[in-house]
Each structure stands twice: as C-alpha cells, then as structure tokens.
Design a protein around this nucleic acid. Structure first.
Lengths: 193, 193
DNA sequence: TGCAAACTGTGACATTTATCAAAAAAGCTT
DNA sequence: AAGCTTTTTTGATAAATGTCACAGTTTGCA
C-alpha cells in the first residue's frame, strides 16, 4: 500500500529505514468515493496529500458561480492548496475526487517536524516541489496560447488520463467553455481523417 | 551590498556565521545595464539570480515572433528558468534587464553543494520556493479571468512597480495586446472620475 | 431493461479581444 | 530646444470565444 510512495521517493532520494519509519508513522490512508471532498473553500488546508489511486480536481468557484479548474491530481502526485497550507489562510479552492480515490495524508506540523529531523526528507519534498514548479511555470505560458493549441498540448501531456476526465472538466482546465471544447474537438477529428 | 540578501534570508531562517560565509563565498555580483540579458533562449540556465537592485522580465518568443512575458523580477526576488536550471535542458525563455540591474548569482552546483552541507540553507531555498509557488498557483487562476479583472489584480499586487514597467510589457504579462490594455486603461480612468 | 439525470454536440447570435493602420504623445540624444 | 525613435492611443474591421437554447447521447441506478 505504501509501496507507491516509497517508489516515488526512491526516484529522488535514498532513505534510511529509520527515516522511512519516521515518515510512515505520520501518514494516514484516506479513502474517498467519487465526488467526495479533500478540501472545501473557506477551510484551512491542513494536509498534503499523495494520490495512491484515483484522481482529484482542484478548482475555484468564481463570483459568478463558474468553476475554474486549476489542476488535476492523479497517481503519484502530491496535492493540496499550497498557499493555504503554508500560510494557514482559508483556501479559495475545492479539491474533489473524480473517481474513487485513495490518498496518503500528512499533517503540516508533522511535515515540518520531519524536515527538522531529516534533511533528506526535506530534500525529497524540495525536489518534488521543484519538479511541480517547473510544470506550473509551463502552464502559465500554456494559458496564453490559443484554445486549440492548449488542447493539443493538454493531450500531449495528459493523453494517458484524458479518458478519465469528463470534457467539461477538461474545458474548465483549458480555460474555455464546454461548447468551445466540443467544437475544437470536432474540427480536430475532422482534420485528422 | 549583501545586506539585502541577508535581510531576505533572515525573514525565513537564522544562519550561523559559518553558513553565511559558505553562502557568500559562492555568490558573484553581476551588473547589467538596461536591455542586457541574464539568459537567452536555447541556453541552459546555470545560475539562480537574486535581484539586489533593478528589474528584469522573463519571456518566451512564440513561433509567430510574439513575446510572452511570464514573470517580472524586481528587488528581493530569486529569478531563473527553474525548468532549465533543474533539468539542465535548453531554456525557452529570455531574461532581460528592464533597467540597470544588479544581481547576485549562484551556480547550480554550488547550490546543491550548499544544500548537502547546510540543511538550514536548503530550508531557506525550500521556503522561498514555497512562497513563489503559492504566487504562481494564483497566477494560473488569474490568467483565466477577463482582461479587465487581470489588470485590476495586477495593480493590486504590483501597483508599487507599475510605473517602472512599460505598458507594452504589462500588456504582455496580462496576456493581452498593448492596444487592448490601452483601451482598458482609458475605460478604467474614465469610470474613476 | 428502461428511465431520469448528467453530459455532449450544434446553431444563431453576442461579446471580447486581436489585427492593422495611422496619429498623437513621450522619451532620448545631440 | 529640435529632431529622431519608441511608445501609446484611437478607429475600423476581423477573428476567437462565449452565451443561450435545445437536441442528441451516454451513464448510472432502480
């Protein structure tokens, strides 16, 4: 069950057994069924979550009631509202399961304690954040491209999970309406023939 | 001259004198005049830069030759192409001085060595990255809002440096043309009266 | 298996933003 | 201060995307 996280860590650092124990003593397995929430708008995000199985979406509801998805989290992703977690401020985001999902959760305070006890563990989380940051840096560029290109790029990066996400959510992630995405798709598939 | 960085570090961690030395032995002061480059597209980014004075812009040139600014860096910001720096891949970005600018540069290898020697220094860089990440997370949301709101939000966050940046660059950062920004401004100021 | 609910596709039209061209304003340099 | 360069503004028009309404499709559940 924790294999998945151990494998992920092993990509970045090599932990002693004592460090593995330290970490796994603080982790709690949490199971969500589809449409359950990990985080609701207004709450302070207290945990960082590692997705073992399943997937979630992170979205804001804007003042017109429209949902804006800023991120998906599937297997092997750490997910949380980093701003809320680190600054202990109420979150503007919701994190909701797209399917039945299992995550490992770790409390912020435990995380900080781990960092002070094990530089290697902090190094792991630092490296993961670097990696995530590089991806988000790209996403900022991505959002400035025309809609068709955004969809193409999305498929390049996330083609393997595209079928697990409904189109309306993909549209929201791309920053277009579902109607626009639907039209983009029919154009694209017409061309492809 | 290094006061600025020491103050910045002191906001996050308390370094020993030996750690201060360790760090400052690896830093090099670099002066740029307006329009000089810190990084050019195609190069591998080898340094992380801390802006002591002045400001820079980080932008991509897209396949139509249009410049897309993804970020500004002014005093007290660490700037670099994180993706290129960490993965050692050619950068797609240019980083150019907006005015005469002084930065402290640190080589990637030195940074890594510092991390292995001083967990506290790694903790500082980790915290700075967390802080930056939280801001970029917001920017993803920001780019999905209508142009007028983007400009308002920009002024809320960066009002204090707005006058140091030409409008065409602000427009590019907002993801609109300069003509559109010009029209947004005239509307906004008309209303304000 | 069948029916309701949720999701997706399509058409007509509205709105936002881009593009192109040119004038006006601001900034630099001598 | 005059003249050159760069930036900003303005107008006319085009392109991209959104909105609303509704029909077709899929999905899940009783």
């Amino acid at each position: 069950m924790n294999e998945r996280l151990l494998d992920h860590i092993a990509r970045y650092v090599t932990l002693d057994l004592s460090e593995q124990e330290l970490l796994f003593n603080t982790l709690i397995l949490k199971k969500l069924s589809k449409n359950q929430y990990l985080l609701k708008e207004g709450d302070i995000c207290k945990y960082d979550y590692f997705v073992i199985q399943g997937g979630v979406r992170q979205y804001e509801v804007d003042k017109n009631g429209k949902e804006l998805i800023i991120h998906f989290g599937f297997e092997d992703w750490w997910i949380s509202d980093k701003a809320s977690l680190w600054n202990e401020t109420p979150s503007i985001y919701n994190i909701e399961a797209l399917e039945d999902t299992s995550v490992l959760q770790i409390k912020k305070e435990h995380l900080e304690k781990l960092f002070s006890l094990s530089p290697k563990l902090e190094h792991y989380f630092h490296l993961v954040l670097q990696h995530t940051f590089a991806i988000w840096q790209n996403k900022i560029l991505f959002l400035q491209k025309p809609a068709e290109e955004r969809y193409r790029l999305f498929r390049e990066m996330y083609g393997h999970i595209e079928q697990r996400i409904s189109q309306q959510y993909i549209a929201s992630y791309l920053g277009v309406t579902r109607e626009t995405l639907s039209r983009l798709r029919s154009q694209l598939f017409k061309k492809a023939k």
